[in-house]
Amino acid sequence: MKLARTIRFDESDENVFSRPAEPGEWAIPGGFEFSNWGEADLVGKARQAFANGWLGLGSFGRSTFVAVAKIEQNELDSLKNKLSEHFVRVYGAPSVEVAREVAAGEIAFMTELAEDHAPNTLLTVSRSLTEAGVSEAFRAISPAEADIDIVAVHGTLD
C-alpha cells in the first residue's frame, strides 16, 4: 500500500504557509479545510495553502510537494485515528467514531491517488474555486522526469 510523505527542497514552505508541514510527514490533499471558503478568504498565506498545499498529518501544516512512499497498515490505522481526532478538535465532529468514517475516506482517496505511482514520484496539487465548490487537480512527476532545476537552489560561491 502507498501514501505520500511531505518533502521540502528548500525553505520556501516556511515562507509561504502560515503553518508549514515538517518534512517526512504522511500527507493527504486536505481540501476539506477549504470547503466553506470564498474569494474573500483567499489572501496571503491562506491563498497559498489553498492553491497548492498538501496537508501533513503530523503537524496539520501544509507542504508544496509530497513523494509517494510505501506505508504499513498499522501506520494507516494510526493516521485514521489522528485525523479523526483532528476533525473533532478543529471542525467540531460529534465524536471520534463518527469522524473516523470521513477520515478513512480522506486517507483512502490518497492511497488510491498514490497507488499507481512508483515510490519517490513527486505529486503536486492545484486548487481553484468553481461554482460547484473547490476543484482539485493533481500532477505526478516521476523520478526520471525530475530535472535538477525543479529541486536545486542555484547560487554562487562568491
Rank of each mutant, 00 (worst) to 15 (best):
Gly31Pro: 02
Gly31Ser: 15
Gly31Trp: 04
Phe32Arg: 06
Glu33Ala: 13
Phe34Cys: 01
Phe34Val: 00
Phe34Ile: 02
Ser35Asn: 07
Ser35Lys: 09
Asn36Leu: 03
Trp37Cys: 01
Trp37Asn: 00
Gly38Ile: 01
Gly38Thr: 01
Ala40Glu: 11
Ala40Leu: 12
Asp41His: 04
Leu42Ser: 01
Leu42Ala: 06
Val43Ala: 02
Gly44Met: 02
Lys45His: 09
Lys45Leu: 07
Ala46Glu: 09
Ala46Asn: 12
Ala46Met: 09
Ala46Tyr: 09
Gln48Thr: 15
Ala49Ile: 01
Phe50Ser: 06
Phe50Gly: 02
Phe50Asp: 04
Phe50Trp: 05
Ala51Asn: 15
Ala51Phe: 04
Asn52Pro: 01
Asn52Phe: 15
Gly53Lys: 07
Trp54Gly: 08
Trp54Val: 12
Trp54Glu: 06
Leu55Met: 14
Gly56Cys: 06
Gly56Val: 10
Gly58Leu: 10
Ser59Phe: 02
Phe60Glu: 08
Gly61Gln: 01
Gly61Asp: 08
Gly61Thr: 03
Gly61Arg: 03
Ser63Pro: 10
Ser63His: 08
Thr64Met: 10
Thr64Ile: 07
Phe65Val: 06
Phe65Ala: 04
Val68Ile: 09
Val68Asn: 10
Ala69Phe: 00
Lys70Ile: 07
Lys70Tyr: 12
Lys70Phe: 09
Ile71Val: 15
Ile71Glu: 04
Ile71Thr: 06
Glu72Arg: 15
Glu72Cys: 00
Gln73Glu: 15
Gln73Met: 08
Glu75Asp: 13
Glu75Cys: 01
Glu75Gln: 14
Glu75Leu: 11
Leu76Ile: 15
Leu76Tyr: 00
Asp77Phe: 00
Asp77Val: 03
Asp77Trp: 02
Leu79Arg: 12
Lys80Met: 08
Asn81Phe: 13
Lys82Cys: 07
Leu83Thr: 04
Leu83Pro: 03
Leu83Gln: 09
Leu83Val: 05
Phe87Gln: 13
Phe87Cys: 05
Phe87Gly: 04
Val88Ala: 13
Val88Leu: 05
Arg89Asp: 15
Arg89Asn: 14
Tyr91Ser: 10
Tyr91Asn: 11
Tyr91Gly: 07
Tyr91Met: 13
